[in-house]
Design a protein around this nucleic acid. Structure first.
Lengths: 205, 205, 205, 205
DNA sequence: AATGAATGAGGTTTCATTCAT
DNA sequence: AATGAATGAAACCTCATTCAT
């Protein structure tokens, strides 16, 4: 079954799609709860009450499953963020909305975020290099900043550095939520949005 | 040997100390290079050209080895940072030196930092909860900020949030270094120090 | 497979039941022949010409395998003894049949008895206490004796002590068979049955 | 050091004898407490606060240590029983004293008995056969019975069977003590001595 | 007389994967 | 579309033993 017809991607039946979704959802739960090292086909299958080989059957390998998990969460994030961002026009509004919708998605999808974090940090090639780099998100953000500068909406900072700083702030939140008992996400969103706004704003003249 | 007379800490031989150091150093290399999941006694022993059981002999367990690795890096960081911080008096100088020395240590000990990152993120208890929380560093930083506020050296921000933000910026650098081909650490240090200084500074009157 | 849907007992395939039986039988042989300490998955698998992990697959752990061995022999003994005992009515006939059928089972299932003996004596919890106590058999015997006394069929001995004495005699036979080259089981059965009959019989009046 | 001069047994220094005794005593404790399978050089050494190799040094091997343990307990039992038995003259008194002193020794040396039981049941040769048979004790008892019959002091039972039955009763007590919470040793000694006396006594004429 | 250091064999267990059904 | 059965590699760990000091 896994034998893709020619080079084309095989059409998937409804049932198969459902199973795949079920397995991906369960993988996310296990990853978020127990971490990458403790996530195995056996553990996922056990939770679903199915046999291990079902997973091999549908995904052909651990790598593929994890990749699908990452992709699924990415797609969900995109579905949430993109329409909101598209609705904005000014560069500052785009940046603010990017940031806010990203943080909201993280707030509302804690498990999914934890899962892809596990995947990003742990999946490696045989030579040890990380399989998922994640420079992509930074580049997208940098693009927003650059366009804003072109429009004269932002101050004249280095876009690459600023993009990284923002990503670091955003991605750090997950850890903060996990460790800080007093953590309040909504307050933090407002603060971060304000902080970034100030940090990118043109100096008042 | 692992017998540990009573519960007291056994006196360690010179040879043993050397071996332990050698093993810890090698563990750091493997962790940084291949990641937590691929780090095993077998791999470490192979690199050192010794038998697996040597590691069991000196460390008695994977957990203990990893804990020692974390401790070793911690101790090294403390040895580097503490004297520099102690030399400062004003709260702002203390904060700046804390930050700068921390960043310098990260810059100069990339592998060690990567290794403890792997450990922090992946070592878990059987129930899935993380074994190394790391809230400690945040508390230390918060204490610095609080004292500075008492002295009137800082603005009136929320110390907990600010402490977390700073830590997120600092810890994010490791990833940035790994992923950003153009990353320049020294520039970044200066920028971050300046950024934090501005973010904590009392509004000019 | 070992996944066990919920906590319910999984339905077992014919093939699985066969393999389990095969493994249990082989475990009994190894236990009886080489003793508990030398009984390992490796040794059993080697004899069966299968891979070690097959046993892990079917039993999930050494403890479970040994427990199943004990249970299997117990069940076989019960299947042999219970119908014979049930066919009796008078207390003395019940006691005699209990004893004789027990001894016959021991005579005919030497290896099985040796195997469970190894298990009983050696399987322990982490704190060192024995996992299989075995006071159950004594209590059953004591109950027979007590009922007989109530019916006036037996003399007025202490049932607990007598129950233990009988069990000690019965269980000692295994060792005797192993060590005494001239040992004749059938003669011994008759002697023991007669001995116990005399020891419990009401004094002639 | 272990290299015995010629074939003769090396003279042992006082210190060495002390260490050996200490190790043997500790081995007995571990055996009795945790059982054969959990008894290792490591565990013994740990309890004594010495290094494993000390044991290897003094005993040259696990087998030798266990043999010495068995021998030590045997010797102690002999020291206790033999003078008492020698003080008797009539066959019936000899039998009674043999039995009573044996039971008293078992009562007073529970740990030692448990230890040698572990050894007897578990130590095996490579081919699986038991290394310590223990038919010796039965033969000694049988000799007592035979001499008594010759003197006309006992009934005309089969001495071999009777010897085994008595040994089984005696050896079963250890298990009974371990499992029966209401077990009272002294009562049991009296009962057993009386029981055996009746079982061997010439029928009144 | 003792120890520290190391070894290699062997133990149980978990894993991803394969294959016939 | 799914499963049951099996596999072999690799994991960590414990063991008795050896050897130089």
């Amino acid at each position: 079954m896994r034998s893709e017809n020619r080079t084309a991607v095989r059409q998937r039946t409804f049932t198969e799609e459902a199973r795949r979704g079920q397995i991906i959802a369960c993988a996310i739960e296990v990853l978020a709860e127990l971490g990458y090292a403790q996530t195995s086909f056996a553990r996922i299958a056990e939770r679903l009450g199915i046999s291990k080989s079902v997973i091999s059957y549908h995904f052909g390998g651990k790598d593929e499953l994890l990749e699908q998990v990452a992709q699924a969460v990415y797609a969900a994030a995109a579905r949430y963020m993109i329409p909101r961002i598209r609705a904005q026009h000014s560069a500052r509004a785009v940046l603010g909305t990017y940031l806010r919708s990203n943080l909201e998605f993280i707030r509302d999808h804690g498990k999914d975020i934890d899962a892809v974090t596990e995947i990003f940090l742990n999946v490696r090639r045989k030579d040890g290099s990380r399989r998922f780099a994640g420079g992509q998100a930074v580049r997208a953000l940098q693009e927003i900043l650059r366009r804003g500068q072109d429009e004269g909406a932002f101050a004249d900072f280095d876009t690459r550095t600023m993009a990284w700083a923002i990503r670091n702030l955003v991605d750090g939140l997950t850890r903060q939520r996990a460790l800080d008992p007093e953590f309040d996400f909504d307050t933090c969103i407002d603060e971060l949005v304000a902080l970034v706004d100030r940090a990118t704003r043109k100096a008042a003249s």
